[in-house]
Amino acid sequence: MPKPKPDSLTPHQRWERDVRRAALAAALIAARERQGLTRAQLAERARIDRTMLYRVETGKTSLSVDLLWDVCRALHLAPSELLAAAEADDAAAQTLSDD
Rank of each mutant, 00 (worst) to 15 (best):
P2V: 11
K3N: 14
T10M: 07
P11A: 12
P11S: 15
H12C: 13
W15C: 02
W15Q: 06
E16R: 12
D18S: 02
D18Y: 02
R20N: 12
R20I: 12
R21H: 03
R21A: 01
L24S: 10
L24I: 08
L24P: 03
A26K: 03
A27K: 05
L28R: 03
L28I: 11
I29P: 01
A30G: 05
A30F: 01
A31P: 00
A31N: 01
R32E: 09
R32M: 06
E33A: 04
G36A: 10
G36I: 08
G36V: 14
L37T: 09
L37M: 12
L37F: 10
T38K: 13
R39N: 12
A40T: 13
A43W: 02
E44H: 10
R45Q: 13
A46H: 02
A46W: 03
R47A: 13
I48A: 15
D49L: 14
D49W: 13
R50K: 08
L53S: 06
E57V: 01
E57A: 07
E57C: 06
E57R: 02
K60Y: 11
T61A: 05
S62M: 14
V65C: 08
L68V: 10
L68W: 12
D70N: 15
D70P: 03
V71P: 02
A74C: 04
A74N: 01
L75Y: 01
L75K: 00
H76G: 09
L77P: 02
L77G: 10
A78I: 01
L83M: 06
L83R: 15
A86E: 00
A86I: 02
A86N: 04
A86G: 03
E87S: 13
A93W: 14
T95D: 05
L96D: 08
S97Y: 15
S97A: 14
S97M: 08
S97K: 15
D99G: 14
D99R: 15
